[in-house]
Nucleic acid binder design. Structure first.
Length: 304
DNA sequence: ATCCAGGATGTAT
DNA sequence: ATACATCATGGA
């Protein structure tokens, strides 16, 4: 594989690979050391993370294997292609974290969360794997969501052999659409199995395209995504934030609902849409999703 | 054993 | 629009 390194010092606001990779944004990376989600983020870490990326228009034309680790102030990578534009895309390395933090309102919770996980970036997942990941996320723990995506890739995705190692791409819409609900239940998807199968079929059949949301205003984009089975407002917000580049999206999950109750009670407007508007403004508007992700990771790790 | 996890759906009001 | 029961699974 090709190799290279990106100096962290060249990235505005730095970078923290472990908090970016293990904060419950993306479920498409894996640690070959088997320690995903097992160690606290306290000591940073220098573990390898790897993923298989299927073609992304204007970024990569062929499927690629990418491995990356953070050590000695560098982001070192191995890949079947030039990983610099690919990692820049997937890990949003061109975001200016200084500017984003400066645009985020100061309050005790946000200050603590940004300080604790400085260098954490949003991800930009491929949209179909992201959509399936968050359909699977309903009432499920982070580590188990990750396990589901690993099993889907291992059972139904294309195999790629590189340097004697076997990698598995995430299945395409067609590959998932041709599985039965019963087969997916065998992977412990539970009641989410028919949601995954039916959404994959909608996309494979050309009935709907999640990428069409990219050309819409934020709330219209969210409504567009809720047409998929198993996708409500919250999952739609996750796809907008972690795949489609809507950095203003604030997914209202259980942790953020708790944060609203404890820290921003005036933002509780009853329904999802109006509460979303209020917390989005509370978190600074355009990059409110960054604040959401810091708060989520901070609170989920015990608020310390 | 009982509770809970990055919620969504179908149904009734 | 809003309220409610129901939906699998496995770890604490």
């Amino acid at each position: 594989m090709e190799q290279g390194a990106i100096p962290i010092a060249e990235l505005a606001g730095g970078f923290d690979l472990q908090s970016t990779g293990e904060s419950g944004q993306s479920y498409l990376w894996d640690r070959p050391d088997g320690e995903m989600y097992t160690t606290t983020a306290a000591h940073g870490g220098d573990a390898w993370y790897e993923t298989v990326v299927t073609p992304i228009p204007d970024v990569i034309e062929e499927s690629a294997v990418v491995r990356v680790r953070q050590v000695d102030g560098e982001l070192r990578w191995e890949s079947t292609t030039d990983a610099v534009p690919l990692l820049t895309h997937l890990l949003r390395l061109d975001d200016d974290l200084h500017a984003i933090e400066a645009d985020t309102p100061a309050d005790p919770l946000l200050d603590s969360a940004f300080e604790r996980y400085r260098g954490m970036r949003l991800v930009r997942d491929p949209v179909f794997p992201c959509l399936i990941s968050f359909i699977c996320s309903a009432q499920m723990r982070v580590s188990r969501i990750h396990g589901m995506q690993r099993r889907l890739a291992r059972e139904y995705g294309d195999e790629i052999q590189v340097d004697g190692e076997t990698y598995h791409a995430f299945p395409t819409p067609g590959q998932l659409a041709e599985r039965t609900e019963e087969e997916l239940r065998e992977l412990s998807l539970g009641y989410r199995a028919p949601y995954v199968q039916r959404t994959a079929a909608m996309i494979a059949d050309g009935e709907a395209d999640p990428r069409a949301a990219m050309g819409l205003d934020y709330e219209d984009a969210r409504d567009h995504l809720t047409q998929f089975v198993g996708v409500g407002d919250k999952v739609a917000d996750c796809v907008l934030l972690f795949s489609l580049g809507f950095t203003e999206a604030v997914p209202l999950d259980t942790w953020i609902q708790t944060a609203i109750a404890d820290h921003y009670p005036d933002c509780d407007q009853g329904g999802y849409v109006s509460t979303s508007r209020a917390i989005r403004e509370q978190f600074g508007g355009q990059y409110a999703g960054y604040a959401q992700t810091y708060v989520f990771h901070y609170l989920r790790n015990g608020g310390n």
